[in-house]
Amino acid sequence: MYDTKRQWKAWLYLLPMLVLLAVFTIWPIINTVRMSMLEKYQALAAAGGKTFEVSFYNFKDVLSYNKFLTCLKNTMILCVVTVPVSSILALLIAVFLNSIRPLKRVLQTIFFLPYVTNSIAIGMVFAAMFNIVGSFHGTPNQIIETAGIINNMLGVFGIEPINWINPGSTYGANITVLVIYIVWNALPFKILILLGGLQGINKQYYDAAKVDGTPRKRIFTRITVPLLSPMIAYVVITGFIGGFKEYTSIVGIFGEDMGPAGASKRLNTMVGFIYDALENGRQGRASAAALILFAIILVVTLINLYVSKKRVHY
């Protein structure tokens, strides 16, 4: 055992950090729980002396709220589609980058670029690329001019311009653009992590496999993937956590309306819902939504950890 004197010293050194933690992490969490349990809690009214009943009203309210269910659905779709797609793509690209010699550095830099650029700015660039200018609902004789490079490129292959994000666009088209954007934005970090993992694998495993005449596909599935599994698990778990917090990408492409004109909030997410509630002074609702989001992330992460415990070789 350490003597009390030394323990005191240790606590003293920890104090600044503990104070910061208490003020900026622990108290907000407690306060969130408190606010979520107070019926129709509003901070302004509370400041004015109003008291609130303790109940689960906020949770029931949020869960039966159509707008919230839309947000939940959007978030779920984006997570379930983008995380596997971006993880698999990142894995393939990392393996490819790791296996080439010439242009390796250049390609690594190119793949890393999205990571160091502002995501709102990139979102606006994406919006421009998928944009349509001119009348879309013209008669067949009218020429449709598109300013978006994507539609121009599709035109080369004889594909009719698609209304991706403009007024009148479909939900499916919107989600497609979002998925492409989020996957592309998530790639650099994942590639970086997986490439680091790949470079840490002893080359002799591959030599051994080669001497034993292992086909390339089998080397990938039986050697590369298992030896990389800790990194893959990390990338997937952080991917899901990031996915549930998705917000900026939608703002970047669709603006703060979270949807094309005439269908605003159609693409809103859970985080967006919380922001909206706060903006309207509904702290009780926002807190309840935040706790629900927390619970979902917790459950998904636990499932991830449970699966990886069985599959991941450390």
């Binding site: 002893n202 002799q204 495993y205 030599d207 001497v211 599994s229 070789h313």
Partner: peptide, 13 residues
């Protein structure tokens, strides 16, 4: 050929 590496290179997983 069968090759035994200096550090064995057994597949750890």
């Amino acid at each position: 050929v069968g090759l035994v590496f200096q550090n064995y290179a057994l597949y750890p997983h």
